[in-house]
């Protein structure tokens, strides 16, 4: 009985401490928090979003829906505020459609026809590594093994470029590959470069 009373007091003390802590560190309400980061977000997604339930398609919800869902999942999964912002950055980028602009000027060069400023390796390490792993073997259920020349890499560059650009889900796959790996900043040339780089895993 006494121990319970004592521990009740201990708990209340803990709660008060937590509250005090809470008030003293307002990293987020004051707007000085670090903004979400796409690459960190892809990692948060890979490491957490399949912990309790099947990993959902990264393109399944609208941006505003992902926003609320991410906060809901922060509560469920004990994510930090930073992890929440990161995963929102990842999920909202994955949503950006690889759509053509409505009015195009045929003469002006489109962003994607510019030459790649990044090497295939740089693109891979920045955008693809979270899900496909440093060794190309895949870190998620459903992610293919690039260390084998069989499987997806038996397809032509053109097909692979198309699948990476538009996103891809094979029948029966538990998870889809988001368009451009979720990173809409990638140009056609970046994607060509990274597809070339993928082939180096199977050598």
């Amino acid at each position: 009985m006494k121990t319970i009373n004592n521990s009740s007091k201990a708990l209340l003390a803990t709660m008060l401490t937590v509250l005090a802590m809470a008030f003293s560190t307002t990293t987020q309400a004051d707007g000085h928090a670090k903004p979400g980061d796409f690459t960190r977000g892809a990692n948060v997604w890979r490491d957490n979003c399949g912990r309790c339930h099947n990993i959902r398609d990264a393109r399944e919800l609208r941006d505003d829906q992902w926003y609320s869902t991410a906060f809901h999942m922060r509560m469920r999964g004990g994510l930090t505020g930073q992890e929440t912002r990161d995963v929102i950055a990842f999920l909202t980028s994955s949503n950006k459609p690889a759509r053509k602009p409505i009015i195009t000027d045929a003469k002006a060069p489109t962003a994607s026809s510019k030459a790649s400023k990044l090497s295939g390796k740089a693109v891979y390490n920045q955008t693809c590594i979270a899900c496909h792993g440093a060794d190309g073997k895949g870190t998620l259920p459903g992610a293919p093994d690039f260390s084998s020349a069989k499987g997806p890499l038996s397809q032509t560059d053109d097909i692979l470029v198309k699948h990476v650009t538009d996103g891809f889900q094979s029948p029966g796959s538990p998870m889809a590959m988001p368009a451009k790996g979720g990173n809409t900043a990638l140009t056609d040339a970046d994607i060509r470069a990274v597809v070339k780089y993928l082939r180096s895993f199977s050598k």
């Binding site: 509250l19 802590m21 809470a22 987020q28 309400a29 309790c52 922060r74 509560m75 930090t80 505020g81």
Partner: peptide
């Protein structure tokens, strides 16, 4: 739920029991 900062959220009301994994998450 009040997201007090990056590491604490205060929850008031009727909530799923946070004990174990099945009831709250599965």
């Amino acid at each position: 739920d009040w997201f007090v900062n990056d590491y604490v959220a205060l929850v008031g009301g009727k909530f799923l029991s946070p004990l174990g994994q099945f009831r709250q998450n599965l």
